[in-house]
Amino acid sequence: MMTGRLGNALRSILDIILPRLCPVCGKRLTVNEEGICFTCFRHTERTFYENTPYDNRVARMLWGKMNIEKAVSMFVYIPKGHISQTIYDMKYHGKKNLCTAMGKIVAAQIEGSGFFNGIDLIVPVPLARKRRKQRGYNQSELFANGISRITGIPVCTKAVERVSFSISQTQLTHNERTRNVEKVFRMKNPDMIKGRHVLLVDDVFTTGSTVTSCGNEMAKAQGVKISVLTLSTVILHGISD
């Protein structure tokens, strides 16, 4: 209890010196708020796919494309909406703490559903070295770290790598997206995920082409099982995954 009180006191002091702002509305975050404020969170459209992880829109989009156990996306991605602004800040505004905070928020919200039961490792979709160097970090890896802090499930970043710098998915058609990410992932250390149940994590799910390409490469490891978790899913067309 004392640790919590001291932590809140320290956060209060830091918030005075370096106030944290909600990336959606610009409001100052309170001591108990992380990532986005409670008001914006309440107005962000949820999918509640964690209640049907084996049969929902995201899971069905992966059927027949990869050997999938279960899949969840937490939010609906709406252009110029609450979550789209958050993800834009995560990717392009260097807000590393926001990436981790959103992972913690997602994990805390769906942990009670039992979705994480049986998961051995969390594997974030990797970035190519060139893009990671440009950005300075992989937002999906930081998002995965946030999930790990809540669930205690370790993050593995050494099993698979991205070997090509594919062009942005934003303006591509479904078929072009699929071709754009074909053979861009390579297994590095299959023994790290051999016989394990792996949770593949990314920020946005659109057509599933990126997740499918990465998942099928990881499926080369003997006895591996793969589930998927993304921060959001696009219902409309034309948004990058």
Rank of each mutant, 00 (worst) to 15 (best):
M2S: 04
N8G: 05
R11W: 04
S12I: 07
L18P: 00
G26H: 05
T30E: 09
N32R: 03
C40F: 09
T44G: 08
Y49S: 08
N51C: 04
N51F: 07
D55R: 11
D55S: 15
R60W: 05
R60Y: 03
W63E: 10
W63Q: 04
K70D: 14
A71S: 15
A71L: 10
A71W: 12
V72G: 11
M74D: 09
Y77V: 10
I78G: 03
G81M: 01
I83Q: 10
S84T: 09
T86S: 14
I87F: 09
Y88K: 09
M90L: 10
H93C: 12
K95A: 03
N97R: 14
T100N: 12
A101H: 14
A101Q: 14
A101M: 11
A107M: 07
A107C: 08
I110W: 03
F115I: 10
N117D: 07
L121R: 13
K133G: 09
Q134I: 14
R135K: 04
N138V: 07
Q139R: 07
S140Q: 01
L142Y: 13
I150M: 07
T151Q: 01
G152I: 12
T157E: 09
K158Y: 02
E161C: 05
S164K: 15
S164T: 14
F165D: 15
S168K: 08
T170Y: 05
Q171N: 13
E182A: 13
K188M: 14
K188N: 07
P190A: 02
H197F: 07
L199E: 02
D203P: 04
T212I: 11
S213V: 13
C214S: 03
A221Q: 02
G223A: 05
V228A: 03
T233E: 07
T233H: 04
I235Q: 04
I235R: 04
H237Q: 08
H237W: 05
